[in-house]
Structures are given as C-alpha cells and as structure tokens.
Amino acid sequence: MEADELLVRVAGGDQKAFEELYGLVSGPVFGLVRRVVRDPAQSEEVAQEVLLELWRSAGRFDPGRGSALSWILTLAHRRAVDRVRSARAATEREQREGMRAHHPAFDQVAEEVEAGLEREWVRHCLERLTSLQRQSVTLAYYDGYTYREVAEQLSLPLGTVKTRMRDGLTRLRECLGGVA
C-alpha cells in the first residue's frame, strides 16, 4: 500500500496501517533527522517524536496539498531543525557564559558511508550546482541554518542567498529529474 493511503487509514485510528507506514518511513525519517541533528541519542528521540506525531495528527494530512511522504519528511525536517537550533542556542549561551568554546561542525556535503543510488545521484546533482548554490542549500537543509545565518557564514547579502537557494533547488530538480 502507498504511504498516502496508509496515512489516511492511520488518521482513522488503524494501528496496523501505522505499522506498515512505520516500515515505509522510519528509515527516511530517522536518516534525515540524524543528518540534521547529528547527536545519535537526540536524533533517535526526535525521530520518535515525529513518528508519534504522525499517529496523533495524521488527520491533518491533506492529500490535495502534496504527497504523504513529502508531508512526513517536511514535518521531520522541521522538527529536526527546531531541535538543532535550540541546541545551538544553548551552546551559544554556554559560550557567552564562558563555560567552554565549541565550534559547530561546518561540512556541507554529506560524508555518509552508505551509498544508495538515490544518495549518489543527489550527490552528483549537488556537485553540478555552483559552489554558492550548493552551500546555500546544504547549510540550510542539512545543517539547519537560517538563511540569515547562511548569509553571514558565506559573507553574502541576504538577497543573494535567497536567490542561490531558489536557483539551487530549481537546478537540483532539473538534474534529479526522472530518478525516483
């Protein structure tokens, strides 16, 4: 069964459908959260929250507005970003208080070990972006920085970053094209 149909059943309280949906989406949800959050224990926790949130709020999914998988991964991404930002805010507080110095990791393109076809293809397409497009997109999506923070890190005007993000995503779409 497709995720869309499963999610609609889950909204109706169908636990079996949830189990099936879990099988489909737990890997993508966990992987995405871990990519953004990094810390394994926190990643697991955020992923769990997202999956439970699917159960609780499946009724909010509106099939007319996009696919279930997009909805689910959008939710997962947002929660991961929220977590990593509050963790960063806490780190900054600590730094201000002089408790310890800590510089957040700053690698843009995934250095993942497992190499699925999709992963390789995304990497290939990311490499075909200009460096600024790639960094604008990946610093935001994989590392959870706001576009203002990205602008600061890349020493670019805000408007330029917004344009690079848009162009980067559009070019990705053209490159990723038919590969599902």
Binding site: S26, F30, E44, T74, V137, Y142
Partner: peptide, 26 residues
C-alpha cells in the same frame, strides 16, 4: 514545487532506524 525538491534531499539521507525504536513507537 520547491518543497518537493527539498524532500529529494531528504531521501538521500535515509538510514535504518534503530530496531528498539520500532517497539517503543508502536
């Protein structure tokens, strides 16, 4: 459209979730 593009970035990060997580969530 742009969100669908962004989600493509998500798929490439998929990784098996810890087994114990399944029991806890269910």
């Amino acid at each position: 459209a742009l969100s669908e593009d962004a989600v493509r970035l998500a798929w490439s990060t998929a990784a098996p979730a810890p087994l114990a997580m399944r029991d806890r969530v269910l």
